[in-house]
Amino acid sequence: MTAPHEQKLRVTGSVVGHGNRVGDGKVVYRLTDGKWTTLLGDAAVIAAERAREALSAATADEGNATGVYLAPVTLDSGGHPTPANLRERIRSFGPTVALPTHKAA
């Protein structure tokens, strides 16, 4: 399957900028000031008409984030973005199976 950042841009509603932090690979979201956060709720919500411009700016910041793309979101009652599809829910909230817990020796 083609990765989202390699697909043609198709935006019909609100989106947020996604990426992976270069140093540790963690999923990060674009803030309004151009920085990145690991909290989806704090991410900048981008309207469809500004999507192309926002994607260009986010992609240019490849020293901090890689694999950048725009993912659809819906807004909860507090106005915070939440993932609009299953893939992005899994990406944001983790695998759907229970993972082993690490206990340091």
Partner: peptide, 12 residues
């Protein structure tokens, strides 16, 4: 990739 390092959904 030549060193077996991939970027996946959640991490490297």
């Amino acid at each position: 990739l030549m060193n077996g390092v991939y970027l996946q959904l959640h991490a490297y």
